[in-house]
Amino acid sequence: MTDIASTSDSLLSAGGSHARADRIFRLGALASGLVVLIILGLIVVSTSIDAWPAFSELGTDYFFGTTWSPSEGLFGILPLVFGTIVVSAIATVLAVPVSVGIALFVTEVSTKRVGSAVNLTVDLLAAVPSVVFGLWGFYQLVPVFQPVLNSIAGLVSGIPVLRSIFGQSSGVGFMTAGTVLALMITPIVTSVSREVFMTVPHNDRLGALALGATRWEMITGVVLPHSSAGLTGAVLLGLGRAMGETVAVALLIGASPHISANLFGRGEAMPSQIFRSLSEASGTFRASLFGLGVCLFFITVLINMVARRVVAVADRRLKGA
């Protein structure tokens, strides 16, 4: 009798303290979530307040103007938006095949030991500070890159469209910044792709191989289709990183805000312009720089939303709802 009573007592009290712990945990989680949200909101609001003069004074000239020339009082952000998009696109186009290739090698081909060596190397790449990439790019890569880019430009100089895309290079520019940026986003794209490939069911791989697929056919037939949603996520994550990257791009893009087809030429990106000019800017110029920050934020949010949508659709297609 006493036994039963004490057992049920302890059951009750345990249940009580568990329930309390559960409640505390939930409140804690909610609170930290709210804190993050509030901080995010404050950042957006305060930056927008600082940017407001530019938005209200310049209006459409700000958002759709094609000349960014602070000395003339012209603050059209399109050249900077263009630079950011071009540089990030170059970086993504270069980084994604390499990253996916490394991830496939590690998950599908290499032995465990070689695989972890490769992983370690890639992870080390992620540990290199952005400014070091910028300095290395500027002092080591540019001298090597310039003649290469110019000889490519020479090769296509007779071909109408290519001629204007691959023009003369002064060493720094979209392509140089994009290439270094590609190196910088390779670790994140690689590790996300790796995770994605590791979620492909082993049985699906065996299924393909049992049908007489070579390893490559197994990869294209099973692993990649299975990973389309996840890889989209990886690509857009890399793109997002590339768009926000500041210091290295500032050093390598050429600080020349203009819209041009020449990928080898100079340009300017949004974060680099903020980084370069903020200390000396005032008035409308300063507000315009804050405005760049706000725009960059919304572009990144937009990309994220598109990414989520793409992933969700691909996922649904995969599950065959």
């Binding site: 069911p201 049985n203 699906d204 065996l206 299924g207 393909a208 191989l209 049992a210 049908l211 007489g212 697929a213 070579t214 056919e217 037939g221 099973v222 289709p225 299975h226 995969l318 599950k319 065959g320």
Partner: peptide
């Protein structure tokens, strides 16, 4: 493996259409 096929314990269709599942082997 092409001549000696295998069916596994757990059904493991590919995340593709029914048609593409069956056509996968002949395609490769």
């Amino acid at each position: 493996r092409r001549r000696i096929g295998m069916v596994f314990q757990k059904p493991n269709p590919f995340p593709k259409s029914i048609f593409d599942n069956v056509a996968y082997g002949p395609k490769i």
